[in-house]
């Protein structure tokens, strides 16, 4: 997939979704082990369900955040920059869930020689329940404009005109 230029983006457009799963206890364990997270709700079923009264062991919020980040880094490619991302863990996700990260463009604006695109984002389970609502801002090159600087310096965007 070709990385988008600012001019390619339409307000209201959906970006390509990122699907993960079905998630299993092994996926949750692999993540918890990789980050050395010993929080029992991620691997101790009895603790999760009896002590914390949860429906099952929990898919880590820390894992979901990387999925939300990947949704945007996959879309903007190596020529754009994921500048800001924000989300809340409102819904619980459990083994058996297939998770779909999605994004919709809500605003676009020229800033300095670049373009800034704001999105609504989220992570739905297979029933369509939204569990991780959020927002993101990405910086894209304009079609005949300079490359987005790396490392990224927000000062390069100049002052917002809107």
């Amino acid at each position: 997939m070709k990385a988008p230029a600012f001019e390619d983006v339409l307000v209201g457009q959906e970006i390509p979704v990122l699907v993960k799963g079905p998630m299993t206890t092994a996926h949750v364990m692999r993540w918890s082990a990789s980050m050395e997270n010993w929080h029992r709700i991620h691997y101790d079923w009895r603790y999760a369900t009896e002590h914390d009264k949860l429906p099952d062991v929990m898919v880590n919020g820390s894992w979901k955040q990387h999925v939300m980040v990947q949704l945007l880094t996959d879309w903007v490619g190596e020529t754009g920059w994921l500048w800001k991302i924000s989300f809340q863990f409102r819904g619980m996700n459990v083994p058996g869930d297939t998770l779909t990260a999605w994004g919709r463009v809500v605003r676009k604006e020229e800033r300095g020689p670049y373009g800034v695109v704001d999105l609504e984002i989220g992570l739905k389970n297979q029933k369509g329940d939204e569990g991780t609502p959020g927002t993101a801002s990405v910086v894209l090159p304009r079609r005949d404009g300079p490359a987005v600087p790396y490392p990224f310096d927000p000062g390069a965007l100049g002052v917002a005109t809107a």
Binding site: Q65, W83, S86, F89
Partner: peptide, 10 residues
């Protein structure tokens, strides 16, 4: 974990 707000530079 209630959520995160990130700003990336490099």
């Amino acid at each position: 974990n209630g959520g995160y707000d990130y700003e990336f530079f490099r």
